[in-house]
Amino acid sequence: MSLTLDQVHRIAHLARIEVDETEARRTLGQLNGIFGLIETMQAVDTQGVEPMAHAQDLAQRLRPDCVTENDQLAWRSAFQAIAPEAEAGLYLVPKVIE
């Protein structure tokens, strides 16, 4: 399987990554190289092998249902100090409305 240039642009758009034509062509070559590797691996017989969801063979640790956060006013001030814009406790962003 190999990608088209249009698909590279689309993937870049979905990830909100700006690529120009030169970069897109270079990326196309790199991605198709990766697909080539994958194609080689497809030849391996994986019959009966459970798909891996995580590289570590461990189970998710669970946390007791406790509220552990306090002094949220101070935290909010600290978080919003590094935000581009904030007002009345809200983060401000360019208007988004459907």
Binding site: R63, T68, Q72, F79
Partner: peptide, 30 residues
């Protein structure tokens, strides 16, 4: 570990995990 209570003032129940600061990890609530 942020509270889920309804009706608090904006962003007072949003910690580093909830606002997605880099380097944080989610831990699942039992």
């Amino acid at each position: 570990g942020s509270s889920t209570a309804f009706g608090s003032a904006p962003n007072l129940q949003a910690n580093a995990v909830d606002i997605a600061l880099p380097g944080v990890l989610p831990v699942l609530n039992r």
